[in-house]
Computed example of a mutant assay.
Amino acid sequence: MLKILGKAESINVAKVLWACDEMGIEFERVDWGMPYRDPKAAEYLALNPNATVPVIDDDGFVLWESNSIIRYLANRQASDLYPSAPASRAMIDQWIDWQAADLNPAFRYAFGALVRKFPGFTDEGQIEDSRLRWTQKMQIAGAQLEKTGAFIAGPTFTLADIPIGLSVLRWQRTPIDKPDFPALDAYLERLGERRWFNERVASDLP
């Protein structure tokens, strides 16, 4: 059985859990990440030298980086969530990569300060800068959702909606001043119609 190492409260672990649920993949999850088990322990570093969660062990095949993991699992299952047509797949990859490379760095400081309350994340200037950059990125996501009228990469739910959907949920739940983006609200309502979004993801993430 697929083994997932990581805590359920992590957005990156949640990507993998949600993807498995959507694709009907059975798994065993083992808590790693503070305050459970330290990912800097030698046992964990042997699997992932970055000391980040998640890691999967698929019958001896070890993989880290959440977006790489969900792509691997979708390919493994030949899932319709990740179609093989080049243009369709490229659009999905574009939004998955955007979440990691552009959106994630924008919200990191504000979320770390206001929700995680990390030590040292107290600089009001950096919090405001993060809020502004986060808002600009969410405006981009909102414009795309207005264009599709449904999901981030088009009219149907795809693998890209897993990282993007989790990020929109994080935006909604973080106590910062934010403009109204009706397309994002409607998007979360659509995701809320999916069983696993409610039963697995929405209940676990801060």
Rank of each mutant, 00 (worst) to 15 (best):
F61P: 03
R195C: 11
D80K: 11
Q77H: 08
N12M: 07
W18N: 09
E193Y: 06
L63K: 04
I25C: 09
V16Y: 10
A46R: 01
A202N: 13
A110W: 03
I140S: 09
L2T: 03
T174L: 08
G120E: 02
A106H: 00
L159R: 03
L47E: 09
L191I: 00
N67I: 06
A46C: 04
F181Q: 02
Q144I: 02
L73F: 04
G112P: 04
I70P: 03
P86C: 10
S68D: 12
P86G: 10
S10N: 08
A110S: 15
V168Y: 05
L5I: 07
T148E: 05
L145D: 01
I69Y: 08
F197Q: 01
D97W: 06
K7G: 09
D204L: 13
R133H: 11
D59E: 14
T52E: 13
L2R: 05
M138V: 01
V115L: 10
L114E: 00
T156R: 13
G112F: 02
V53S: 12
Q139F: 06
T135M: 10
I140Q: 12
A101I: 07
F111K: 05
V115I: 05
Q144S: 03
L73H: 02
T135Q: 13
P83T: 08
E65D: 07
Y82Q: 00
L159H: 03
R116Q: 13
K3G: 04
I70C: 01
V30H: 14
D31H: 04
N67S: 15
P39V: 00
G142R: 01
Q77R: 14
T156F: 10
T174F: 03
N12C: 02
I25E: 10
I70K: 02
P83M: 11
Q94P: 10
L2W: 12
D102T: 15
M91L: 14
F111R: 03
L166S: 09
F157P: 03
T122G: 14
A101N: 13
S79G: 12
Y82L: 12
V13I: 10
R173E: 08
I96D: 04
F121V: 11
P49A: 13
V201L: 11
L81E: 08
D129H: 13
G24S: 07
A19D: 02
T52I: 10
R71N: 03
W171H: 02
M1F: 10
F181W: 07
K137I: 03
Q139L: 12
D21T: 06
S10H: 03
K40T: 14
G60Q: 05
S84F: 11
I56H: 06
E28M: 07
W134V: 05
A46G: 05
